[in-house]
Design a binder for these strands. Sequence first.
RNA 1: GGGUGCUUAGCUCAGCUGGUAGAGCGUUGCCCUUACAAGGCAAAUGUCGGGGGUUCGAGCCCCUCAGCACCCACCA
Length: 971
Amino acid sequence: MTTPQTTNLANALAKAFDPVAIESHWYPVWEAAGYFNAGAVADKPAFCIQLPPPNVTGTLHMGHAFNQTIMDAMTRHRRMCGDNTLWLPGTDHAGIATQIVVERNLEAQKISKHDLGRDKFVEEIWKWKQFSGDTITQQMRRLGASTDWSREYFTMDPNLNEAVTEVFVRLFEDGLIYRGKRLVNWDPKLKTALSDLEVVSEEEDGHLWHIQYPFADGAIDGVVGLTVATTRPETMLGDVAIMVHPEDARYTNFLGKHVKLPLTDRVIPIIADDYVDPAFGTGCVKVTPAHDFNDYAVGQRHKLEQINVLTLDAAIAATMPEAYRGLDRFVARKKIVADLDALQLLIKTEKHKLKVPRGDRTGTVLEPLLTDQWFMAVDKPAPANHPHQPGQSIAKKALEVVASNEIKFVPEHWVNTYNHWMNNIQDWCISRQLWWGHQIPAWYDELGNCFVGRDEAEATAKARAAGSLGVLRRDADVLDTWFSSALVPFSSLGWPQKVDSDLMRRYLPSQVMVTGSEIIFFWVARMIMMTTYFTGKIPFETVYIHATVRDAEGKKMSKSEGNVIDPVDLIDGIEIEPLLVKRTSGLRRPETAPKVAERTKKEFPAGIPAFGSDALRFTMASYASLGVNVNFDFKRCEGYRNFCNKLWNATRFVLMNCQVTNDETGELSTLDVGLNAADAVYLSPLDNALISNLQQLEMAVNRAFTEFRLDTVAAEIYQFVWIEYCDWYLEFAKVQLAQSRAVLESATATPAERDHATAAARGTRRTLLRVLEVCLRLAHPLIPFITEELWQKVAPLAGKEGASICIQPFPQAQPEKLNADAEAFVAELKLSIDAVRNLRGEMGVSPAEKVPLYVDSQSATVMAQMPYLCALAKVSTAHHVAALPDVNAPVAVTKSANWMLDIKVDIAAETERLNKEIVKLDAEIASVQLKLSNASFVDRAPPAVVAAEQQRLADRIAKVVQLRAQMAKLS
RNA sequence: GGGUGCUUAGCUCAGCUGGUAGAGCGUUGCCCUUACAAGGCAAAUGUCGGGGGUUCGAGCCCCUCAGCACCCACCA
């Protein structure tokens, strides 16, 4: 017989959960042990997730924390389920974005990139990349990300660089990459082209200027000229025509005539094109093919000249009239308007709202500009001998793999977004006039002939073969950063060197791509296009689109707006002062700093407390429903930090009850927890009910994982651990252990009684331990650190072995352990306890006070309930009577019995309480009666539903009868 | 101008194939009960955006209106 000497646990677990020590301890252990490295066992299913590589522009934000928590939970889940997991990490060079950051840093030191020159400047960016990349990977470790660091990549690593070159050359050779002078979105500040996707248009206040263009040969029919309306008058210097709608009766007379372009000496024709909307403005539109995308198309249709007005930095070009040369576009605009006014050609100026295109990174107003750029032809058929999609265009194929359900979107409606974009896709401008990125593998001879090759030698050979003998000069431009990102699904696995490697076979396609909706076009679509074209495989099976993280007010989090939260600050906590410094630096509009500070002080008056990584992750998971937005409220972290503490203390309780410390030696020894198969174990209905519930939890959690519902995973675990396990079962367990102890300490107990008490204590301890141990494994994907720490303590006692919880099997339900009878017993017991507790509450009994109780039943069920009920509802003594005493105390009616506290009653309060309850019941009875008296309900509703209603009616009527009787006694 | 999503308790959000409205936080009492005050027990709060329809029955399906958010688009 083992009798506890003491339950001193000072050397086992601290009284409160302290995340800092745990987290810093476990991550390095996991990493060193290689638990996260890609599995090498061929016969296990593969599970791969490609991390959307964070930009090396600084640090991770809440969006990353959200995104990564989801991926980590999924990866840890599948790893525990026995899959070969590969969560592949990397970082993205993020061309423009990173170059801008480093440029700004240098500007702060009064250095311009031109002072340094290209090579030195790129060196500076590499230094920054090192710093930012290290910060990011460190943050990921703090978040507990179980990525395979041994395969970490950077999009400008040599092997990925090689993939980029290979892809470029092949697409060029297949005729799907071309170079040409086209109208592109031009950022005059950065002096680079941008793709359509990098343009953000917002409505701004502007003007619509009405300008008269006089007829070249004098008035016609008394009309001196035509009036056009424009929002960008400076571009008129490049006008090559005026167009009207062909059926616009006002102007048909003038078709084919000419006008004199004001401020120049040019004469331009009046043409007809049905692009013109006669109802807008004057119905006359100036045509400027070199500076407007519509006009460009009109110009093509009518074979018009393209006259460029602007330089690369958006000043008026040297080819323009002298008066305007060299003027900035906006200065020139003012001058031109003034000059037209002076010439009395400015008819009127209207206020006008217009969409102004700006660069998404710089906010600069963009100009459509004619420049030489490289494009990818997405709509052009692939060569007839292409191995994977002969004769089929890249966009077509990308649509096909989604239409065929090879690639699924979750939530599904994002397919529409994808299809819409893909059906209207334009050729992709892939060249950028930047210094940071993959340099385009194209070389030119002195005549401008272009040779594309994998390296200079190959290009030279092609040049020589074509008869070009001079020196070659490499194209200075780099590729759009998304060009390399698009290759990640295969370039990160070793392509092109390893085309048929184990890695490629196993981890391409990956199982799920986890990302926000904002990069469906930028990245998801392009990965699909590139991966299918070059590997014949889809890049991933499922695209899981998660919400965008916003601040508590629903505003998009942005460093330049000063409302970002660094996930590490939620983990470690931060004082208000440093938080203010963080938030007020680097603002887009520095003058907003006081406001930002004010808002920050209001939201975080005392800074941010340290919640720990697990609490942050649990919060993120609980936010991961399939919605569009997440308005992040840090207070939820507090709730989940408390949950971690709950789990911690539940473990403390379990250990206290399963281990003893010898007072003299200080040695810890384990009590009998039923590990020895030969020992009899008695499981009470309460033990069995908990175990039964646990099976349901296991089913629910596994199902939720497969449905990508991490919010459900979190909610299920939270509910089970806190409510079922801690609030109910732990209290029941105390009763059971106390009962056994009483028997074992009794001098009069028979041997049979002692045996049963031993078996029961064994069963309780075993249930406590095993259920806890399972909960730890269930929760591990969400809260890896605390579960590891606790599992190390709990698992050995529960008869489990293993170096780490990371690689333990994920709990799966055992249907044979479902136990409806036990669950029903506990459900009924809970109702009884609730009823008695409710009586106490109603009668204002102090929670500390124990009170006597009457119950009008001695049924087996009630007798079995009593020990638990007395403990949980603080009953001093229970009197079992045939009928409750005929006094005016309140009665609680439950399924099991009628209950009454033996204390003095406040008659007024009790009358009120009864009245309230009777009214409620009457209303319910009336509504059920109405339903049941409806013939069509009884006839047409399923019999089970009708029966349930009838039962409900009977119950309520019985109850109300009881209450009425009680009421009668009061008066 | 098209398209998508959203509108449920004071706040943030769950509600599966239609069958008696839920959670967390917050609020209000009372308790430092030997796992946990980062806690326990109890309590209050909803014409599920408005209107119409289908159905025995609608938060859920259909129509319509309103508001919010986002995405796409070439109106000078």
